[in-house]
């Protein structure tokens, strides 16, 4: 077991876990943050995506030990004081979320994208979200939501 200290959504946390435990499982099992989803468990779908020190990563591919001392943002940390983040609001209004399994990863991938390109082109949006698969929306509404979010954010 390894002692891993990290800051999750602004709160300092400490867990004692096997060092190769997936960050995704640390979040869901040890920290009871079940917003991050498991789709494939192989880095293909982005449902487990989180921001690690401000950078988008798939938490199913990150061993716990590698996040020791890091700052993490999960979907639970995106809204503030019970108010939806503009990106979340735009996904809601544009119909960018249906079943919702892909949505946490999509929102964080969007946040990462807008950090890099505040006014992304359609090509940049498609590339930025290429690692996030959605079985429901057909993507067009998601792209619209991102474009709207870029306007209001």
């Amino acid at each position: 077991m390894s002692l891993v200290q990290l800051t999750v959504n602004g709160t300092r946390q400490q867990v004692d876990v096997p060092p190769m435990k997936r960050l995704l499982d640390v979040l869901r099992e040890d920290l009871a943050l079940t917003g991050s989803k498991e789709g494939c468990g192989e880095g293909e779908c982005g449902a487990c995506a989180v921001l690690l020190d401000g950078v988008l990563v798939n938490s199913c591919l990150v061993p716990a030990l590698q996040v020791n001392g890091s700052r993490l943002c999960t979907i639970e940390g995106v809204s503030t004081e019970g108010r939806l983040h503009p990106i979340q609001q735009c996904f809601l209004e544009c119909g960018g979320a249906q079943c919702g399994i892909c949505t946490p990863g999509m929102i964080l991938a969007t946040q990462h994208l807008l950090d890099k390109y505040p006014h992304p082109t359609m090509e940049q949006i498609q590339e930025g979200l290429a690692g996030n698969l959605c079985r429901c929306t057909g993507y067009m509404r998601i792209f619209e939501a991102v474009q709207e979010a870029a306007k209001v954010a």
Partner: peptide, 9 residues
Amino acid sequence: TGSVANQNR
């Protein structure tokens, strides 16, 4: 080489 998340890691 993979998606943005893969390229970050």
